[in-house]
Amino acid sequence: MKVMFSNISKQYKGKYALKDFSAKLENGVCGILGANGAGKTTLINIFVGILKSDNGHVYINDKDTKSMGKHFLSHIGYLPQYPQFYKNFEVIDFLRYMCVLKDIPKKQGEKRAKELLEVVNLSDACNKKIGALSGGMRQRVGIVQAMLNDPNILILDEPTAGLDPQERIRFRNLIAQFSENRIVLLATHIVSDIEYIANQVLLLKEGRLMKQGSPQVLIDGLKEKVWMVTATNEKMVETLQQYKISNMMRDHGKIHIRVIHEEKPDAHAVNVQANLEDVFLYYF
């Protein structure tokens, strides 16, 4: 499965939400990383067809999605941002409803829903009302509905927003599990969501693609650019004003500052291994 975005642009009131966005995606987890307002949701909405781009095309296996009509929808599974679903529906009824919407035959849908509920560990909750579920459980229902039609492309928009650490890790593992033989497009501004599971990362800033590559390639690009500086209180203020700081920690009266800079910021600064968070900070 291949997805190609070609020169996608979208603007509102003269301001670009997305500008000349082009990228190629292949099977695996693809993280779209960007600050709030970077254009992630706009890109996803254009991709799933609920928003028209001003320019550009999206291709699936070299076929323009515009020419695919409704058939295109059978390729995708989508989990929008902050879904509430229907509180008075039981989980299983909601999934049955989604099967009807996705034109999945009853028996097949029923079987698939039960299998997926098993995978996400929600079999016991299948007769619970959605309104009675925790945020994490609701998100798991969300990914189940997205997976009902066994899509080639799974699109998740900020799926871990508002989840506690345990649920976040559980959800991350599910994404990795579901990424076999399909593209998982995961939009987030939380670096840790994609750091360990993404095969490639798209860095989006103010509607433009800043960088694309595997996490390791992006991290390698920061080689010799991340430094650990040990400072006093007086020096800390100066360092904070001069450099991009990715972390700061007090330890036994000293302050360890993680600095991102092209050159060694201090004679005693020690070069350290970069991580994806440093990459994020470097470009934003």
Binding site: N45, V48, G49, I50, K70, L73, S74, I76, Y78, L79, P80, Q81, Y82, P83, Q84, F85, Y86, K87, M98, V100, L101, K102, D103, Q145
Partner: peptide
Amino acid sequence: SEKETDMEMLLLTTKSG
């Protein structure tokens, strides 16, 4: 209710939605 539950977006990405 579709707007309140943010289901309007999801509906549009389904064949019968």
